[in-house]
Design a protein around this nucleic acid. Structure first.
Length: 413
RNA sequence: GUGGAUGUAGCUCAAUGGUAGAGCCCCGGCUUGUGAUGCCGGUGGUUGUGGGUUCGAGUCCCAUCAUCCACCCCA
């Protein structure tokens, strides 16, 4: 048909089979998160641009080139959120919750980043985000990972790889960063162009470079793990110990670097090899400095986000829910009666469709196309005797029943 | 932002530079109170868009847009 209107590049429609899977993922998340006492919040899609510049970091790709931002009619600089954590922290502060103990939140909704579309990468995509505000122990980090692990297992996706790392904190990271810069500067010739730029702007990102020659140079690079301060060291050790106790398999990967500036200490990713280049299905970490950065009191926190579409790609197709009953009404004289029968069936919880009009043959064809389990035939005979002829479409058998029998038959599977 | 591949019917795909086709879907019929399989018939295309080469372009060239994949980035 008309191809003059298409959805915007990288922004896709969620049709029924997609939504079925998304709902399954979301429902599983709600069920699992409930056991950990997390509660749902709904946060704005539009936020002040400055919020993300401040929280994610001006030099990051997300802020420097991927945000959809614009000036609105009132002259305010606003943007479509590229992620959820900054908005959650903003809401937490705005509601004055910093003195109310810890908050356990989750949310779901669309995020927007203007990247080049690819497998597992859209310009509008959905995340389920989890934020645990005002907690500082490694046990909470472990518990959050346990929750993520339980969620993925519940979905039947246990064969994913959990990688963890510690990014240090403002006490130990600057020192480590300096050592890394010295190391990298001694071999600038062997590093790719972008990495040479990174040495000045964000040297930790060099560790994450996928360029083989860069990786080769990093074999002897100083690792954050061996430069952690005592507190970070204890924290990381505590996390690993708790994960062992909980029997959650993990791999320490010193290469994990988060692309958002607010992370510190614990960083983690859950990865699949089945999605090509975009294999990160869930990722997050600790952001102890973010609440303070956004103007609140020093408040430690952990969180993660997962990509709904990416997880959906790992799930098998789910069957559509088909109507229980198709109404075949024969003759104009019964149409009002048939309408009432349908209403009664629906009131009882059956899903019911009318099969149009015309000949019985025509209506049965329609019933077949709708894949109904049963057809309720209603003609003058049925109307006068107050019965319904119910045909089982799978085996072709049919019997004459009263309304209540029809309801039990259709609700009993 | 940079590369590579691909755009033909609603869908999946054909068509040595020479009349655009098939399967599925859809619609109708096979005597009207019984569907799927069967048989017969039918609708449906400015070949993504715009230029160019040619007597002639779905096919070759250029541009543009979109999709997919990779780089990059990240959920």
């Amino acid at each position: 048909m008309s191809k003059s209107f298409r959805s915007i590049r990288g922004i896709h429609d969620g049709l029924t089979s997609d939504v079925r899977r998304w709902r399954h993922i979301e429902q599983t998340a709600r069920d699992v998160f409930k056991c950990y006492a997390f509660s749902e919040v709904r946060l704005p899609v539009l936020e002040p641009t400055a919020l993300f510049v401040r929280s994610i970091g001006e030099e990051t790709d997300i802020v420097s080139k991927e945000m959809y931002h614009f000036t609105d009619q009132g002259g305010d600089d606003i943007c479509l959120r590229p992620e959820g954590t900054a908005g959650a922290v903003r809401a937490y502060l705005q509601a004055g919750l910093t003195r109310s103990g810890s908050q356990r939140w989750f949310y779901t909704g669309p995020m927007f980043r203007r990247e080049r579309p690819q497998k597992g990468r859209l310009r509008q995509f959905q995340q389920i985000g989890v934020e645990w505000l005002n907690v500082q122990g490694p046990l909470e980090d472990a518990e959050l990972l346990a929750m993520a692990h339980a969620f993925l297992s519940e979905l039947g996706l246990p064969s994913l790889r959990l990688e963890i790392n510690s990014l240090g904190c403002p006490v130990c990271r600057p020192d480590y960063r300096n050592k890394l810069v010295v190391y990298l500067k001694s071999r600038t010739d062997c590093l790719c162009e972008t990495c040479n730029v990174r040495i000045e702007k964000n040297p930790l990102r060099v560790l994450d470079c996928k360029n083989e020659s860069c990786q080769a140079q990093l074999a002897d690079a100083p690792e954050m793990a061996s430069h952690l301060c005592n507190d970070c060291e204890t924290h990381f050790f505590g996390l690993k110990q708790a994960l062992d106790v909980l029997d959650i398999p993990y791999h320490v990967n010193p290469r994990i670097v988060r692309g958002l500036d607010y992370y510190n200490r614990t960083a983690f990713e859950i990865i699949t090899d089945q999605l090509g280049a975009q294999g990160t299905v869930l990722a997050g970490g600790r952001y102890d400095g973010l609440v303070g950065e956004l103007g609140g009191p020093a408040t430690p926190a952990v969180g993660f986000a997962l990509g709904l579409e990416r997880i959906a790609m790992l799930l098998p197709e789910t069957e559509a829910e088909l109507p229980d009953i198709g109404i075949v009404a024969i003759g104009d004289s019964v149409s009002a009666y048939a309408l009432n029968v349908a209403a009664e069936l629906r009131k009882a919880g059956c899903s019911v469709v009318h099969c149009g009009g015309g000949s019985a043959k025509r209506q049965f064809k329609m019933a077949d196309r709708e894949h109904v389990r049963f057809v309720a035939v209603i003609g003058e005979d049925e109307m006068h005797s107050n019965h319904i002829t119910l045909k089982n479409m799978a085996d072709g058998n049919q019997e004459t029943l009263v309304l209540n029998q029809v309801i039990t038959t259709c609700l009993s599977g």
